[in-house]
Design a protein around this nucleic acid. Sequence first.
DNA 1: TGATAAAATAGTAATAGTTACTATTATTAA
DNA 2: TTAATAATAGTAACTATTACTATTTTATCA
Lengths: 126, 126
Amino acid sequence: MKYSKQRELIKQTVLNSSHPTAEDVYLTLVEDNPQLSLGTVYRNLNTLCDKGVIKRVAIPNSKDYFDGILSEHQHLICDKCHNIFDLDVKAMDELADKIEKDQGIKVSSLQLFVKGVCHNCQKDID
Amino acid sequence: MKYSKQRELIKQTVLNSSHPTAEDVYLTLVEDNPQLSLGTVYRNLNTLCDKGVIKRVAIPNSKDYFDGILSEHQHLICDKCHNIFDLDVKAMDELADKIEKDQGIKVSSLQLFVKGVCHNCQKDID
DNA sequence: TGATAAAATAGTAATAGTTACTATTATTAA
DNA sequence: TTAATAATAGTAACTATTACTATTTTATCA
């Protein structure tokens, strides 16, 4: 894989922002790099995911988000502000084991989508 | 809401098949109803979901599936045959409670996506 | 350093799944 | 049976993403 300035910028943008979409990354970078192409952003986000440099957060009925945090964690989608927040749900491995035992199937991946109200928005309600 | 023959057929097709997509429903029905429009299928699937007659199974990076079983359950997406299977995961309510306590947030919905190998495909492996 | 090969880019076209629009048809209620 | 209104078929449009292609950038090595 050859170095490219664009890929470097895209990587840094994901690492320095919270769950940006491809479009977020593009809009962030295009200001100082007016020649940047949205296709380049998509292509590099895919490459970076494939190489394990970043992770894709794929949410049902929504565009993809990207995440610079590689350790396993789950996500909260806030009902109010629609932002995405990291959740450290401890019980996932046990749950996978339980499902394997109870259902008699092999589990290769387990993903949890939590919808609710984030800390910030909860403050606004109180 | 006025009766329509098309909506009735669409509803029956969802109730009588296992997790069909909009296209599945359309292809099933169009044979005996050549005038049926795909738009009508989409519109009525949405209406039936809104009215609580059927449920939408929205899976990340995939088209929507529909489900005639209304009771709360989770889904297995098989790595081999890519079909969708119902899973009765008992621990969901407890998990929601635990997340609310641990994370200090209000959970409005909790969805689990299990990827793995279904019973049928597991048989083929053995 | 300069030539060459390989990879990446920008810009655009194409795709998949779904929704929106509109003229026509079917259903319902009086 | 007519009049209203809701639903349809057929098509266009939309959104998120991928594919294509001519040009540019990067890396290699003589």
